[in-house]
Amino acid sequence: MRSSPRALLIFTRNPVPGKCKTRLAATIGEQAALNIYIYLLQHTASQCAGLPDVQKFVYFSESLGDGAIWDTDTFDHRLQQGADLGLRMQRAFEDAFESGYREVIVIGSDLLDLHTSDLQKAFDLLSENEAVLGPAQDGGYYLLGLTRPVSGIFQNKAWGTNTVLKDTLADLGNTKTALLPVLNDIDLYEDIEGNPVFEPFLKKTK
């Protein structure tokens, strides 16, 4: 039952060796990459759980979670549906709007720099704008929020490349859009290099 006009959609991969953080794993190994990914999932779950007055949905890539990371009392578990990331996000947004939510935000689950306050700011911006975007340093985005469906926003994107943000802004056109600060998501070894938070995960690989 919908108890808030706001919905947070969290897209995540199931934490399986060899199927998550593959570009990072190419440098530090599958097990270390998996351990880092689980750490990032736990961070994201804790930051999202503290967000008040928002319905929270976790969209899994392969199978529904067991509640170990994403507490089922806090997060509604769902499966991603679609052939590519764009279609999967489009369907999740459509479901949210059809269910009556008026401010809908999607995020990934691997951003150490994303905190509850950032999510609150994004929803606050949606109260005054039709869209909000969180640009990532690699040219993509770590957050997208909408107050209504926007035609074409999820089509014809080279997902995972540095053109996604630019192309998305072009699709938004005259839609009143707010931008959040640029943050760095974690895909490559260079994204974690020198960060003491990740040193314990790397020691066994040296």
Results as ranks from 00 to 15, higher is better:
197 V>E: 13
197 V>W: 08
78 R>D: 00
61 S>L: 01
33 A>V: 03
7 A>H: 14
147 T>Y: 05
66 D>R: 13
81 Q>N: 11
158 A>F: 00
145 G>I: 04
135 P>A: 03
171 D>T: 06
168 T>M: 02
18 G>F: 09
69 I>Y: 10
200 P>C: 03
1 M>H: 15
37 Y>A: 03
132 V>C: 06
61 S>R: 06
154 F>L: 03
75 F>P: 01
25 A>I: 11
69 I>D: 06
30 E>W: 00
175 T>L: 04
123 F>K: 07
199 E>F: 10
116 T>G: 09
162 N>A: 10
41 L>R: 07
31 Q>D: 01
155 Q>G: 01
99 S>W: 09
42 Q>P: 01
86 G>W: 01
55 Q>S: 12
141 Y>D: 03
179 L>W: 04
54 V>F: 07
103 E>M: 10
26 A>L: 02
33 A>G: 01
112 L>Y: 15
15 P>Q: 13
131 A>E: 04
146 L>D: 07
59 Y>I: 05
165 L>K: 10
11 F>N: 12
91 R>H: 15
157 K>G: 00
155 Q>R: 15
200 P>N: 05
108 G>A: 06
39 Y>E: 06
78 R>S: 01
1 M>K: 15
111 L>T: 12
120 Q>M: 06
168 T>L: 01
1 M>N: 14
150 V>M: 06
158 A>D: 06
188 L>F: 13
191 D>R: 11
157 K>Q: 03
136 A>L: 06
95 D>L: 11
3 S>T: 15
157 K>W: 00
10 I>D: 11
129 N>L: 05
128 E>M: 08
53 D>S: 08
77 H>N: 08
42 Q>H: 08
111 L>S: 12
49 A>M: 02
100 G>Q: 11
203 K>F: 03
125 L>T: 04
109 S>V: 00
155 Q>I: 00
99 S>I: 02
36 I>V: 14
183 L>A: 12
195 N>H: 14
199 E>V: 10
202 L>D: 04
164 V>E: 01
136 A>C: 08
9 L>D: 07
205 T>N: 05
59 Y>M: 11
123 F>Y: 07
26 A>I: 03
41 L>P: 00
176 K>C: 05
173 G>H: 08
174 N>F: 00
83 A>H: 14
103 E>P: 00
171 D>R: 13
89 M>F: 09
118 D>H: 15
66 D>N: 13
119 L>G: 01
164 V>K: 02
129 N>I: 04
151 S>R: 09
201 F>T: 00
190 E>N: 08
53 D>M: 07
151 S>H: 10
184 N>L: 11
16 V>W: 14
121 K>V: 03
40 L>C: 04
2 R>G: 04
193 E>Q: 14
127 S>Q: 14
197 V>Y: 12
139 G>T: 02
173 G>I: 02
117 S>L: 07
55 Q>D: 14
73 D>S: 09
131 A>R: 09
144 L>I: 12
99 S>V: 03
41 L>M: 05
174 N>I: 02
202 L>N: 01
48 C>F: 03
61 S>G: 01
75 F>E: 04
57 F>R: 15
163 T>V: 08
80 Q>F: 03
133 L>P: 04
126 L>F: 10
15 P>G: 10
91 R>Q: 13
2 R>P: 00
75 F>I: 00
151 S>E: 07
92 A>E: 11
103 E>S: 12
186 I>H: 13
101 Y>W: 06
53 D>Y: 07
